[in-house]
Amino acid sequence: MLHFLNSVAEVLLPVGYVLTTFMYAMDFRNCTALSGTWKTRTLLATVTLHFLYIGMHTAEYGRCMVTTPFEIMSLIAFTLALTYTILELRTGERGTGVFILALATAFELVSAVVMKMPGSGQPNPVLSNMGVGFHVSFAIFGYAGFALGAMHGVMYLLMYRELKRGGFGSVYQNLPSLETLERMTVLSSLVGFVFLTVSMAIGIFSLPVVYDNFSYHDPKLIATGISWLIYAVMMVARYAMHVDGKSIVRIAIGGFVFALLSMTLVNAFLSDFHRFM
């Protein structure tokens, strides 16, 4: 029964994410009665379904959802969607939804595709170690924070361009102020930075224990270190040097692009011991 429900949810979730993003996009372009009324309800239904799915999946397999690429990407999608839902319900800000949910949908779709690949469901036994489990979980929250920061950064640049050009279209009408977008970029990136820092600290202690071939020269460690440095520079620039918002969001976007590309390349071609999938 649980397996059947999980299978149904695995089909429904990507559909739910695509439908929700479509409704937010419709509403962003031109508010219609249908999208205006149903978009938040569809979002809530999708996030609730995702939450139930995480619970059912954990119950079926007897472990947390951090052991396969499919699970990790799905968890990132959930983190993004849940964070946005909380933001929307608390602040009433709906203009940013289409951007964040598009990212969440991308992660969920990739997750759904990866899930169908042969052997993708095999968990790495290393992840049964408590320390490594926390290390991976914190890293996921960290990268989700960076993703959220980058999306707000993209919105900042779009709004900046619209204000400079004097287009005053959908972007001008629907997005919050530049100052708010800058604050959201910095806050999301800061949360991501803290989580990544904790994840790295845990990793430094727990990874040498579970891997015999542990090395500080591992490409993934180096790439993560560079990502961490980029965000550290961003925080210093923002809080100590008071660098302007536009430069800050450029660092946030650059940091996320670097983290995403480096992780993809390193996971695919270079990483030695440091692979969980």
Binding site: C31, A33, M159, L163, P176, S177, L178, E179, R183
Partner: peptide, 24 residues
Amino acid sequence: ETAIGIGAVSISFAAVELATKIFS
């Protein structure tokens, strides 16, 4: 139920609206 009253339609209100799109 409609957006018929949304958006500034006078010079001074539009100027203030513009300010709120830059500063929170």
